[in-house]
């Protein structure tokens, strides 16, 4: 029993130390995607992405609500939610990962830093591992993150019927643009 208590304490101390690093946070990140198919161009924007970045460990997390994507055409939005993403069943998309070459980034100095990000992306209830290049920009203590990457629709078991196969791209481009704020704990 004592041993367990000791172990719990140890774990708590380790966690307390690792979570001591500066954390950056936003609730209004922008994540958009575009599908560039032969017959139709589709773009949608989500301005309410939540994201956390830990500058000590390089860990980052993103979460978005699928229904918060705004399309130009209402019909596209309806089809996106009902037919393809099934957003009643899977309301969120989540990315959990980390900057793999964090040593390149100097959070104390202004500049643009090229980084690699690796993690798990969960869309439509399916989780896949994703590796992408991204840019961390530090400017007067403000931190922003940007990345462009591609996602194959089939990897996430999103079925596109044959009739619209020329309207929807098989590879969808995703753009991420996040401005972080320092996360200060109000207790």
């Amino acid at each position: 029993m004592k041993l367990i208590k000791f172990f719990v304490l140890l774990v708590a101390i380790v966690f307390a130390q690792t979570s001591y690093g500066q954390k950056y946070f936003t609730r209004s990140g922008k994540i958009s995607f575009s599908s560039d198919a032969a017959l139709e161009q589709i773009e949608a924007v989500n301005q309410k992405a939540t994201s956390v970045l830990d500058s000590q460990t390089g860990k980052m997390e993103f979460a978005i609500l699928i229904k918060a994507f705004q399309f130009e055409k209402a019909l596209m939005q309806e089809h996106f939610n009902e037919n393809y993403m099934e957003s009643d069943k899977y309301p969120k998309a989540i990315f959990k990962g980390a900057i793999t070459d964090l040593s390149k980034v100097d959070f104390g100095n202004d500049g643009k830093y090229q980084v690699d990000v690796k993690g798990d992306l969960c869309i439509h209830g399916i989780t896949n591992s994703v590796v992408t290049a991204g840019i961390i920009t530090v400017s007067k203590g403000n931190i922003s993150a940007a990345a462009d990457f591609e996602v194959a629709v089939a990897d996430y078991k999103i079925e596109i019927p044959n009739i619209v196969k020329d309207n929807i791209a098989k590879i969808v481009e995703i753009q991420v643009a996040i401005d972080y704020e320092l996360f200060n704990k109000k207790s």
Partner: peptide, 14 residues
């Protein structure tokens, strides 16, 4: 507005 669910905050759009 239209309720789109919860992340950490509940989100309403439009």
């Amino acid at each position: 507005g239209i309720c789109t669910g919860v992340l950490m905050d509940v989100v309403l759009v439009r």
